[in-house]
């Protein structure tokens, strides 16, 4: 490994009651941080390739640590975020080199896909500097319920010639949401959405996978209507079992 790591920290924050209201099941958020030596401390270099490679390494390592701390398979990761604090002998571009070119790809492998941008933050700081790591849904950047932030801080880092790198991951709630809807007898109210970049074919595949996953909790899925841009394109499919209830347009 290229990164010279001095310290690795993993935290899990489990919220069970908020404002007197039980959060059931609890929200669980993991944060993994690495304190590394900054190879460019104290000097200006045009080529930051070494930090770009370090970012790739750390995306995988810290992502895997988060998933392990949550005790979940990678595909149950729901949202993610990343951040870096550069010690005083470094420049903000060092954080950018770690975070932007290649960290996202290795982090996505650690959490199994991720169509949406990995939200990020960076700053220069000293020992104990806190940074708020932004969190967003990993498959759809505009999911409002998943806009969040988690504070990252290590008391003795970063030293002047170090960089603190943080990755945050939260647990998937799609399955839990579907389960609750079923218990309420309102499975028809579950809406799945994605706004990951189109054109790659990945978002539709992801949607099909999610539909199959959630449907398998109850029965074999039956297609009863397809709407695109608000227009009914077709009704009951002959290729899937007949739906028990036929949807009706009411508005």
């Amino acid at each position: 490994m290229l990164a010279a790591i001095r310290k690795l920290v993993v935290q899990v924050d489990e919220i069970r009651i908020e404002m007197g209201r039980p959060v059931d099941p609890p929200t669980r958020r993991a944060l993994a941080m690495a304190v590394i030596a900054n190879p460019f401390a104290g000097r200006y270099d045009e080529n930051l390739e070494e930090l770009i490679t370090i970012g790739e390494e750390l995306g995988g390592l810290l992502g895997a640590r988060c998933v392990a701390a949550l005790g979940i398979p990678p595909e149950r990761a729901e949202s993610y975020g990343k951040a870096a604090v550069v010690g005083e002998a470094g420049e903000l571009e060092h954080a950018a080199a770690i975070l932007h070119p290649r960290m996202g790809a290795s982090l996505r492998r650690a959490v199994s896909r991720g169509a949406a941008l990995v939200p990020s933050a960076k700053k220069r700081g000293g020992l104990g500097t806190a940074i708020d790591v932004p969190l967003g849904h990993k498959d759809a950047a505009f999911v409002r319920s998943h806009f969040d932030a988690i504070e990252a801080r290590i008391g003795d880092a970063p030293r002047a010639s170090e960089i603190l790198v943080a990755v945050a991951v939260t647990e998937r709630i799609g399955i839990l949401t579907a389960r609750h809807a079923r218990e309420l007898g309102q499975a028809d109210r579950v809406i799945l959405g994605t706004d990951g970049p189109a054109g790659s074919g990945v978002p539709p595949l992801g949607m099909l996978r999610l539909i199959a996953l959630l449907s398998s909790m109850a029965d074999i899925p039956g297609v009863s209507m397809v709407l695109i841009d608000g227009v009914v394109r077709c009704h009951r499919s002959r290729n899937t079992p007949p739906a028990v209830e036929v949807p009706v347009l009411v508005g």
Partner: peptide, 25 residues
């Protein structure tokens, strides 16, 4: 007991600018 939140923290100290021990702390 009204348990509102549980927070866990685990860290590996690989070194503190000296020779790393065989096992991180």
């Amino acid at each position: 007991i009204e348990l509102r939140r549980v927070f866990t923290h685990a860290e590996d100290i690989i070194h503190e600018f000296g020779p790393p021990p065989p096992q991180p702390l």
